[in-house]
Write a protein that binds this DNA or RNA. Structure first.
Length: 591
RNA sequence: GGAUCCGUAGCGAAAUUGGUUAUCGCGCCUCCCUGUCACGGAGGAGAUUGCCGGUUCGAGUCCGGUCGGGUCCGCCA
């Protein structure tokens, strides 16, 4: 061993001991005679003293520079009175060094390891990630994540789940995100795909009788990144259970999420039902009342339909929307009359980004009502609306008039931004909820008039085969559920469709022939013909949940080696070109 | 694919309406200093202002293009 102790453990009780420490030169203070070195390792900082009168190694100590790696040996001595450092765990003592070994030198760092490092350009920190990782903040996040994953594993093992690794070289799947393709050398012209999720494998495990499965599963998707979405690869807590209902899945997941919240954040869990369970919000209700399928329930600010009130009013924007089968929804924002013209313009842009044509409002100021639409509505209706929304002086009411979904989503985006502006997103709170009863189908956004799966084609439709045969497809709900935390989608899951007959019918409604289903989901369908148990599960995005629980701005902070915003690894310089020989073996030509 | 913001020493920033030698802090190098802990003091090096072109007597500043980056929308369990 190069060291007898770490840089974080020595104190007054060790005085007189002869010790060896190894670490990085964190800071050097050269007083001409005496030289102090703050020696740093994962565990802390220890001050090392080189005194020219007491040692022959002073000359070498004089040459030390930041981030050199050294080993020092000497005795632990109590610091003289008034020179202790209360900010340091080891501040009562110092090492009086008599041996110094330089283990490695360091060039001058490309950026300083200082408190305000967040201000340093992220690209340069990513390129030198191995230096950034020396910061205690990043190290403690990685250790936090380790404990977090251990907690999850312990929880499922205790519940008698089995962790099973599923293949990384899998098949391209037609639904969902873009795949990462891996060319096959042994089979010319064929490709593996990295799994977007172990979805089909875990269902096949259920058919295989494994009963309770989980996995901290790597998932790969070639979609553009976001602050809360790491490019390319991320981890899901994938889990699946046999012979269960939706409620059984909830009962397994909720105590885990409560445990993670309590153990890995200081947030207070709010918005629980009286019996301590998570609130369940039907999808349609969530969209109507909060304008989102992942509503932030740390604050109320509810949206109300006012279609009936305004359908015959004098404002053509409202009446035409209603005549076209649409709705008019209203959002009261308490304190919103303070919004400036510029801020309202910005909110209008946000509404428009969700396909709204505009954003009407009634601002109730102290002595007047300020609104571009009151002259069309008339005083009487204006007062009715104000009463309906229970608006007071100081409030503002926003309106969306459009087809139902656009009205919901545009006001939902406005609701979200208003909460930001008014500081309503309280980071001391954790609001968990389930969104349930997702629709099985919706109209395709690409092909007009065509019916497509709204969410996941593997979900069991509520009402089973009978519903598929008899109901309007757009009315059919699925046993499908999302878990939401503070406005972030934390997980999604479903009770799966395990019956081949129902499966073919479900796909038929979405326009897939039996042959197409067999071609694309052959393994799964075949398996279901051999005694598949009813099963269901879900797959929380564990990185994102930890990010929200830890109040991190960026998901990159909890990856040791993250990709940048364009999907590049600046440190390894990937993706990169490969040799002609490699391409030839794989029968690939670059255009 | 679209919108928007940003590129000035190693890092972070400044530079009146376009004006002459591009400024400051940190870091780096040299020297001085025996109790500091963000040590202190003196001096020094370090920049084709991302790149290309244009307007102008004159461009870090204005215009066009391009490259790189951030965030958002689209997309995405």
């Amino acid at each position: 061993m190069l060291r007898t102790h770490t840089c974080g453990e020595l104190n007054n009780s060790h005085t007189g001991q002869r010790v060896s420490l190894a670490g990085w030169v964190h800071h050097r203070r050269d007083h001409g005679g005496i030289i102090f070195i703050d020696l740093r390792d994962r565990y802390g900082l220890t001050q090392v003293k080189f005194d020219p009168s007491k040692t022959g190694i002073w000359e070498n100590a004089d040459k030390l520079r930041s981030e050199w790696v050294i080993k020092v040996t000497g005795s632990v001595v109590a610091r003289p009175e008034n020179t202790t450092n209360k900010k340091l765990e080891t501040g009562e003592i110092e090492i009086e060094a008599d041996e110094l070994e330089v283990l490695n030198k360091s060039k001058t760092l490309p950026f300083e390891l200082k408190e305000n490092i967040e201000e340093v350009n992220e690209a340069i920190r990513l390129k030198y990630r191995f230096i950034d990782l020396r910061r205690p903040e990043l190290q403690s996040l990685l250790r936090l994540k380790d404990k977090y994953i251990q907690h999850i594993r312990d929880y499922f093992h205790e519940k008698d789940f089995t962790e099973i690794q599923t293949p990384i070289l899998a098949n391209s799947s037609p639904e969902g995100a873009r795949d990462f393709l891996v060319p096959s050398r042994l089979h010319e012209g064929k490709f593996y795909a990295l799994p977007q999720a172990p979805q089909q494998f875990k269902q096949l495990l259920m058919v295989g009788g494994l009963d309770k499965y989980f996995q901290i599963a790597p998932c790969f998707r070639d979609e553009d990144p976001r602050m809360d979405r790491h490019y390319g690869e991320f981890y899901q807590l994938d889990m699946e259970m046999s012979f269960v209902s939706q409620e059984d899945v909830f009962e397994i997941m909720e105590p885990l999420m409560i445990g993670l919240t309590e153990k890995f954040s200081s947030k207070k869990i709010v918005n629980l039902e009286k019996d301590g369970r998570f609130r369940k919000l039907p999808w349609r209700e969530a969209l109507t009342r909060y304008g989102s399928d992942k509503p932030d329930l740390r604050f109320e600010m509810e949206i109300k339909p006012v279609t009936e009130l305004v359908k015959d009013c004098g404002f053509a924007v409202f009446t035409q929307a209603v005549q076209n089968g649409g709705v008019v929804h209203a959002l009261k924002v308490e304190g919103g009359s303070e919004f400036t013209r510029k801020e309202i313009d910005n909110l209008t842009e946000i509404a428009k980004s969700k396909d709204a044509k505009g954003l009407a409002y009634i601002s109730i100021k102290q002595n007047e009502i300020s609104s571009p639409i009151v002259k069309f509505l008339g005083d009487e209706l204006t007062q009715k609306l104000i009463k309906e929304l229970e608006a007071k002086f100081g409030d503002i009411i926003f309106f969306a008039a459009d087809e139902w979904k656009i009205a919901c989503l545009s006001l939902g985006a406005v609701r979200n931004e208003c909460a930001n502006m008014l500081g309503l997103k309280d980071n001391t709170k954790a609001a968990w909820c389930w969104i349930v009863d997702f629709p099985m189908y919706s109209y395709s956004e690409i092909e007009h008039g065509r019916i497509d799966f709204e969410h996941n084609p593997f979900s069991m439709p509520q009402g089973g085969l009978q519903a598929l045969n008899q109901k309007d497809p757009l009315e059919i709900l699925a046993y499908q559920y999302d878990l939401v935390l503070n406005g972030f989608e934390a997980s999604s899951g479903a009770i799966r469709n395990h019956d081949p007959e129902i499966m073919y019918k479900a796909f038929e409604i979405a326009g897939y022939s039996k042959e197409e289903v067999d071609a694309q989901f052959g393994a799964l369908i075949r398996a279901f013909e051999f005694g598949a148990p009813p099963h269901g599960g879900n797959a929380p995005g564990i990185d994102r949940i930890l990010m929200v629980l830890s109040d991190l701005d960026s998901i990159r902070d909890i990856y040791a080696f993250p990709k940048d915003g364009k999907g590049k690894d600046l440190m390894m310089d990937s993706p990169s070109e490969v040799t002609e020989k490699q391409l030839k073996e794989l029968n690939i030509k670059i255009r």
